[in-house]
């Protein structure tokens, strides 16, 4: 489990997050939603340690990230897998080398075992026959799947996914969402997905966190989300006609 306590983050005079308190549960897909620029990616970066919070702390299984020494942080990071919005695959490495990269850096395995593990991760995300291609030679959807394969190569306890569906067609988005859900259940990871894609929220979210006006404005399950009377949340989720129809079908206004 990951717990965020009284986390605030400012850039100079500008406060982006204010007093965030949240618990992200193990084996669940925790989705953080909010408008563009609401601070969701900043929250994720504070949690993984790419940004230092101005105040507050992040606890990984009860252990404060801010109190950890450098070596402990390094060990913890080997338990974290992250899929970036841009996939962030290494351009000059092939698909197979990208997935093998964390194994080469940290795993005590023979090269054959590393290749086997990387191959099974690629198979798991349904990528086959692309091993020797470079990231620029495969589609955006495939890049995302390779990014997921790299993120799960070390069999992480914590999985972070930043805007997994950005730039993807609806069909590929569903494939990526299903993969995230399956992997969360299979590896029992604490999964945190940053998104503003309501299809993804309705498809795979176990617990939803809505960031608004720098604060954690609302949290709850999918059903609670659809039945919520919170005005700001309603304005956000029912901005699209599809979501309005879903609400009407459920007997709402």
């Amino acid at each position: 489990m990951i717990e965020v306590r009284q986390l605030s983050k400012s850039f100079g005079e500008v406060e982006v997050l204010h007093d965030i308190n949240a618990q992200f549960h193990k084996g669940k897909v925790n989705q953080v939603i909010g408008k563009s620029g609401s601070g969701k990616s900043v929250l994720a970066k504070c949690i993984v340690g790419l940004l230092a919070p101005t105040s507050g702390e992040v606890l990984y299984s009860g252990e404060s990230f801010q109190q950890m020494d450098k070596e402990r942080k390094k060990l913890l990071r080997q338990e974290i897998g992250m899929l970036f919005q841009s996939s962030a695959l290494f351009d000059s490495l092939t698909v197979l080398e990208n997935v093998m990269f964390p194994l080469r850096m940290f795993a005590t395995m023979s090269p054959a075992e590393m290749r086997e593990r990387a191959g099974s991760c690629l198979k798991r995300v349904r990528i086959e026959g692309q091993d020797q291609k470079y990231p620029a030679e495969i589609s955006g959807g495939m890049q995302k799947r390779v990014g997921i394969a790299r993120a799960i190569a070390m069999q992480p306890k914590y999985l972070f996914v930043d805007e997994p569906n950005s730039g993807l067609d609806p069909q590929t988005s569903i494939v990526i969402d299903e993969l995230i859900k399956e992997l969360t259940e299979e590896f029992d990871t604490t999964t945190l997905v940053i998104t503003h894609d309501m299809n993804s929220v309705m498809g795979i979210a176990d617990h939803i966190f809505f960031i608004h006006s720098k604060r954690l404005w609302w949290q709850g399950t999918r059903d609670e989300l659809l039945r919520s009377d919170n005005q700001e949340l309603q304005e956000f989720i029912f901005a699209g006609s599809l979501m309005r129809q879903v609400r009407q079908a459920m007997g709402g206004r």
Binding site: V48, L76, R77, F84, L89, F90, P102, M105, F106, F160
Partner: peptide, 9 residues
């Protein structure tokens, strides 16, 4: 890509 390296440890 540098963020990806940092997150891997």
């Amino acid at each position: 890509q540098i963020d990806a390296l940092d997150i891997m440890g």
